[in-house]
């Protein structure tokens, strides 16, 4: 079920180029799963033309939250919206993260890089509700890239942060932080969302540690509905390697399915 609705912005929070919107959308709040996304119309004109795919950051009762970074013209326009404005949204879309029964009582690593942290709040909430213990890894280039740190900490989850420049938390890549934690911890599963280089490295670490994992991919999308075949990624599944749609077959794929560096066509 996909809903095409107007949603009122209830509240806007901003940190430089990061934004958190709280929207009133009871249908999407009711139907959604962590890892799903919505397509947002950012302009009433034809420039920019397409909607923007934005992942769901949180869903409660009648409200959904989105967290995004200005990455171009479309997200810049979106960032200029104010509380009270009405957004045209389409969703919930895509296949989200798999929360399994056997996670109960187990430690689950959730790794977010930069704006990739967005879907992990909703995910961690659902993991907690399922009796699992999420451990949040939140990496950024500098401390300014970690605006949601306190939000995750307030939720009473273990939160580990890293910055490439050492301005906050562990100094270095978040992948190195995860790797060092894995020396003395044995989580049951790892979820991640962030830059592809980060996720590719995590996939490699997880394979070495025999740790199952899922990754959420980002892409430019034409429609978000599976109609245009514009947002594909090479995926190994059922003995075949072929282009699957990030919007419909993803955005979440499992550890060994994703062909990270595709060099050639065919």
């Amino acid at each position: 079920m996909v809903i095409d609705r107007k949603a009122r912005i209830i509240e806007v929070q901003d940190w430089d180029d990061y934004f958190l919107f709280r929207l009133e959308s009871p249908e999407i709040a009711r139907l959604s799963q962590p890892g799903q996304f919505i397509m947002i119309k950012v302009s009433e004109t034809t420039n920019p033309l397409l909607r923007r795919p934005i992942s769901l950051h949180n869903c409660t009762g009648r409200e959904v939250e989105i967290f995004f970074q200005i990455a171009g013209k479309g997200t810049r326009l979106l960032s200029q919206k104010k509380a009270g404005d009405i957004l045209d949204i389409l969703g919930p879309l895509g296949r989200g993260f798999s929360i399994k029964n056997e996670f109960k009582g187990k430690e689950i690593f959730c790794v977010g890089g930069g704006r990739g942290i967005a879907p992990l709040y909703y995910l961690a909430r659902e993991l907690s509700a399922a009796g699992a213990r999420p451990v949040i890894f939140y990496g950024g280039r500098t401390s300014a890239d970690l605006p949601l740190k306190s939000r995750f900490e307030q939720a009473d989850w273990e939160v580990k942060v890293s910055t490439d420049d050492g301005s906050l938390g562990f100094s270095g890549l978040v992948t190195s932080l995860v790797e060092s934690e894995l020396r003395h911890r044995t989580p049951t599963f790892l979820f991640a969302c962030g830059p592809e280089a980060m996720m590719e490295k995590l996939a490699e670490i997880c394979r070495k540690e025999n740790l199952p994992a899922e990754f959420s991919l980002e892409s430019i999308m034409g429609c978000g509905l599976g109609a245009c075949w514009g947002c594909v990624k090479k995926i190994r599944r059922n003995g075949e390697t072929k282009y699957l749609k990030i919007c419909q077959d993803g955005p979440v794929f499992s550890r060994d399915e994703i062909v990270w560096q595709e060099k050639e066509n065919g």
């Binding site: 034809t46 034409g222 072929k242 595709e262």
Partner: peptide, 17 residues
């Protein structure tokens, strides 16, 4: 199979696929 991604680029009031 179709072509190597990226497959879509927005231009002013247009879309190249």
């Amino acid at each position: 199979e179709g072509n190597l991604p990226p497959r879509l680029i927005e231009t002013p009031s247009g879309l190249i696929n």
